[in-house]
Design a protein around this nucleic acid. Structure first.
Lengths: 162, 162
DNA sequence: TTAAATTTTGATTATCTCTATCATTAAGTC
DNA sequence: GACTTAATGATAGAGATAATCAAAATTTAA
């Protein structure tokens, strides 16, 4: 690999994440590659939920010398998702959007006008979800909740454009 | 149209739904067609969440004389979804499943082994969702919640096959 | 009731997302 | 450093959904 590759703005939090990733790879006899790290890093730096396509674009811009193929993006995202390091949100025919799942669990509020995703956590809901799964004899692996609507900002704009 | 078409088992509830649909069509200067009605009716009679493909199969079996094309299924489902008469659940690359949205609102518990969808309603969660949207100045249009995991039945089978 | 205007349909092609394949390249191991 | 194994990029393939378009059906208006 090119040791000149620019990994700026590394935080302690990221270093811990990376260590966890390397450990995960080792445990499964997967190999550490620069492509995998760059994907993790790009997800980490992005505050947004990224589609595989968007992630690919970002990486091509930032690390053009790697010539990372879209297949590697998909493969790595699957790997990360299987290992619970990232989670995805489905948008039907619009595909999936991914985010690093190392953070605290949260739900999503999605604006149907501008597509912006706002995150939130609500303990009461989390708690009810567990209770409901239990009631049904269901072994919960994951859950997701989305609230669809029009965000504060678009509500303002509506008066101008509609 | 063929007035011989067999519309058995019509309930009052369905008649109301159909009237609502016809009204919707008229309001938007869409035309009433037998294909559109058959799609609505098939969704109504099905207790399951249907993929466009499954819906197409059902309709081909029940109304072979119509020779309904898959494109019409997609078009009509979009129309119904845009008008909030049906809602869809996304399964990433596995496409969408549709259900009539005229019933009481409910959430979903999805088995990641067998794909079965169990519906449930929880007032506490419904209430919290409204409150959260309000807090963010968000105008809620819809919401969906999914709990993913392994259902009671598959949990039993796991001991045998895994 | 019929003719004109307009929309919908079915068949087909195109597109988009994602997965599989495979020869080449790169990591990990000794 | 050589060997073993896995990962990569390019590309083809699969599956779901959307676009196109001529033919057919519905609605409108006379």
């Amino acid at each position: 690999m090119n040791s000149q590759t620019d990994f700026t703005q590394r935080t302690v939090e990221y270093e811990i994440l990376l260590a966890r990733f390397k450990e995960l790879l080792k445990k499964n006899t997967y190999k550490y590659t620069i492509q995998r790290e760059v994907i993790l890093e790009t997800l980490y730096k992005s505050d947004e939920h990224l589609t595989p396509e968007a992630l690919h674009q970002l990486i091509k811009e930032k690390f053009p010398e790697l010539k990372t193929g879209i297949a590697t993006i998909y493969r790595t995202l699957s790997l990360l998702e299987d290992s619970d390091m990232v989670t995805s949100l489905s948008f039907g025919s619009q595909g999936k959007k991914y985010e690093l799942g190392a953070k605290e669990h949260h739900d999503h509020m999605i604006c149907t006008k501008c597509g912006t995703i706002t995150e939130f956590v609500d303990e009461a809901i989390e708690e009810r979800q567990h209770r409901i799964a239990e009631e049904f004899g269901f072994e919960m692996q994951d859950h997701s909740m989305q609230i669809y609507g029009i965000c504060k900002n678009c509500k303002k704009l509506r008066f101008i454009y509609d």
